[in-house]
Amino acid sequence: MWTRRAVTRLVWPLGALVACGGGERARPLRLAVTTSVHDSGLMGVLVPAFTAARGRPVEVVPVGSKRAIELLATGQADAAITHSPVEEAQALASGRIGGRTPVMRNAYVLVGPVEAAGVVAGAADIRGALRAVAGSGRRFVSRGDDSGTHPRELQLWAAAGVPAESAFILHCNGGMAEALELAAREHAFILSDRATFLARRGDLGLAILFQGGSDLDNIYAVLEPAPDRGGDLDGARAFAEFLRSPTGRGLVGSFGVDTVGEPLFTPVE
Rank of each mutant, 00 (worst) to 15 (best):
T8I: 15
L10C: 08
V11P: 03
V11N: 04
V11Q: 13
W12S: 06
G15A: 13
L17K: 07
V18D: 04
C20L: 14
G21D: 03
G21T: 03
R30K: 04
L31H: 06
M43A: 07
V47M: 05
T51S: 13
R54P: 07
V58F: 14
V60L: 09
P62G: 09
K66D: 10
K66M: 08
Q76H: 12
A77N: 04
A80G: 01
H83G: 14
S94H: 07
G95R: 01
G99N: 13
V103N: 05
V103P: 04
M104R: 01
G112L: 05
I126Q: 08
R131F: 04
G137F: 06
R139M: 10
R139S: 13
S142A: 15
D145R: 01
S147R: 01
E153F: 08
A158R: 15
A164H: 05
I169H: 03
L170I: 12
H171T: 13
N173M: 10
N173Y: 12
G174C: 15
A177V: 00
E178M: 09
E181A: 14
A184I: 03
R201M: 05
D203Y: 06
G205E: 04
Q211S: 12
G212Q: 01
G213T: 02
D217A: 15
I219G: 02
V222D: 05
A226M: 05
D228P: 08
R229T: 14
A238C: 07
S245Q: 08
F255Y: 14
V260Q: 04
P263K: 09
T266P: 00
